[in-house]
Simulated scan of single mutants.
Amino acid sequence: MILLLLACAAAAAWYAVRRLVLVTVSGGSMEPTLHDGDRLLVRRARSASLSPGRLVVLRRPPGMATTGPWIVKRVYALPGQRGPGTDAVVPPGYVAVVGDNPHSQDSRQLGPLPAASLLGVVIRRLSTQDSGLAAGAAGASASADVWAATPTSRQEKP
């Protein structure tokens, strides 16, 4: 019985290390939903599991004015759907994302982002640590610190 419990605990730990990532929000692009300093639990996922409205963590695209290797945004449109503020359709292999702050830098300025840059979907906010960042300040997108596991080969190390 004890061996079974130990085996279950080991399996759960292995799953957590392989599938879960802890991220820290940096910046105001997701305000008022997320604030600077919020800690998020993220489940590694593939783009096939996405749906509009989900919060996701993606690799920061080149040319984006932010620090950190990762960004947190909300899925706006999937391939075949219309992107934000345009009649253009999101092409296969891409996803359109937006920040909740209207001043966020996102697919409204950059266009759709590669779905291959997806790290995962946000499962839950673990803690809120509001640093007093002004609600209108959205100069930097949210970024993430990878915890407990090295990203898979299709993703960069942070």
Rank of each mutant, 00 (worst) to 15 (best):
L41I: 03
V42M: 03
V42T: 07
V42G: 03
R43P: 02
A45R: 04
R46S: 15
S47R: 10
S49H: 04
L50S: 12
R54L: 13
R54M: 14
L55P: 08
L55T: 10
V56H: 00
V56K: 00
V56T: 02
V56W: 00
V57M: 01
L58C: 11
L58F: 10
L58Y: 09
L58Q: 13
R59Q: 10
R59L: 08
R59V: 12
R60D: 01
P61L: 02
P61T: 00
P62H: 09
P62W: 03
P62E: 14
G63I: 09
G63K: 07
G63V: 09
M64T: 02
M64N: 00
M64D: 00
A65G: 04
A65W: 02
A65V: 07
T66M: 02
T67L: 08
T67S: 05
G68Q: 00
G68L: 01
P69N: 06
I71Q: 00
V72Y: 00
V72K: 00
V72C: 13
K73M: 09
K73F: 04
R74C: 02
R74W: 01
R74S: 06
R74F: 01
V75F: 01
Y76L: 05
A77M: 07
L78M: 13
P79T: 14
P79Y: 10
G80C: 11
G80E: 06
Q81N: 03
Q81P: 03
G83R: 03
P84G: 13
T86M: 07
T86L: 12
D87K: 15
D87G: 14
V89L: 15
V89D: 04
V89R: 12
V89W: 02
V90C: 11
P91C: 14
P92D: 14
P92M: 01
Y94S: 07
Y94E: 03
V95M: 06
A96P: 04
A96Y: 03
A96T: 11
V97N: 05
G99K: 11
N101K: 10
P102E: 05
P102S: 10
P102I: 05
H103G: 13
H103A: 14
H103Q: 12
H103R: 11
S104F: 05
Q105H: 08
D106Y: 05
S107W: 01
R108W: 00
Q109N: 07
Q109S: 09
Q109H: 07
G111E: 02
A115E: 03
A116C: 06
A116K: 08
S117I: 03
L118H: 02
L119K: 01
L119N: 03
V121T: 15
I123H: 05
I123N: 06
I123V: 12
I123Q: 13
R124S: 13
R124T: 12
L126C: 11
L126E: 14
S127W: 14
T128A: 15
Q129C: 14
Q129H: 15
Q129F: 15
Q129Y: 13
D130H: 09
D130M: 05
D130N: 10
S131L: 09
S131D: 09
G132S: 12
L133S: 05
L133A: 15
L133D: 10
L133M: 14
A134F: 04
A134H: 06
A134S: 10
A137S: 14
A137Q: 12
A138R: 00
G139F: 10
G139R: 12
G139L: 09
S141K: 04
S141H: 13
